[in-house]
Amino acid sequence: MRDDIHERALQLVDKRQVEGLSAEEHNGLEAHLESCAQCQKGALETERALRALRSAVPRFDVTLVLTTQMRARIRACELIENAARMRALWISCTLSWVLGVVSAPLLWWGFEWIGHRWAISRAVWMTGFALSWVAPAVVAAAVIAWRQARGSSVTEPR
């Protein structure tokens, strides 16, 4: 029974450090510690362990901060440039899509007129119309793929 009291007191010593005590637990513990040298020693050992842990300061290399700041600045510039490039790409894609949609009826009418004018079969002028829509995107995708392939071969030294 006595051992239980001491064990409980030492649990409360740890609890005080880890999650805090209620007023009742705090008063009970303080009263016990005043009358028990063994638990008082246990409490002091816990405090000493935490003091030692807190006093351990890592040796810090100042150049690490400077190097990190330099790397972060370079990466920030890259990200800002990439963001600007992506914004321009999105704007041009949106504009291109809007213009495409707006001009589609005109383009259709134009192809139809040419088909009638030179007696071209319906399948041919419709294919021409479809190609006029798809070709720019195919060319743009091919250029982007080619540039990326070229870029990765340049940035892969190993």
Binding site: V65, A72, A76
Partner: peptide, 20 residues
């Protein structure tokens, strides 16, 4: 905004804590 000076300040401020 990817503000480089803010990153510099944060690195300075949290250097020991993060490293530890």
């Amino acid at each position: 905004r990817r503000d480089p000076s803010l990153i510099d300040d944060l690195i300075q401020q949290y250097q020991y804590r993060l490293f530890r």
